[in-house]
């Protein structure tokens, strides 16, 4: 990051624009959430998708500009790429419940009538 006054002025205007964009996206995501989707699964998935896209855009703005990731050193970038890979692995964890039945209509939790019994003396 160079220290010349001109550069810093430019940075300040970038920060202001990012701020305005973040406010805009915040309002947008709230408004979108008020749009009545049909309660079918496809529409809920769509709503989740739109919500996450907007959140990701905001997250990108904060990370790239406020946290200066758009102009960071390789060591940090590589550490974060590694982190993001494992983060994605973590987020895929819920898929592990029963891959064989993905996309089929399966009651994952076994419904109300299936009770789990544990034989254990509670102290």
């Amino acid at each position: 990051m160079s220290d010349s006054d001109h550069d810093i002025k430019k940075h300040i205007s970038v920060y202001r624009n990012v701020f305005l964009a973040l406010l805009f996206f915040t309002v947008l995501t709230v408004l979108v959430s008020y749009v009545e989707f049909d309660a079918t699964e496809r529409y809920i998935a769509g709503a989740v998708f739109i919500g996450l896209i907007i959140a990701s855009a905001k997250g990108y703005l904060v990370a790239a500009h406020f946290m200066h990731l758009n102009n960071e050193k390789p060591m940090i970038n590589w550490s974060l790429i590694l982190t993001v890979i494992f983060f994605i692995v973590l987020l895929f964890m819920p898929l592990l419940w029963d891959m064989n039945n993905m996309g089929k209509d399966v009651d994952y939790w076994g419904g109300e009538d299936q009770k789990l019994e544990i034989y254990h003396d509670v102290n």
Partner: peptide
């Protein structure tokens, strides 16, 4: 804790819905 967990013959008084896995 999953729903309807029975311990010592009694249903646990929790909201359930979780997963031990």
């Amino acid at each position: 804790l999953p729903s309807g967990l029975v311990v010592g013959g009694e249903v646990l008084a929790n909201s359930g819905g979780g997963s031990p896995l």
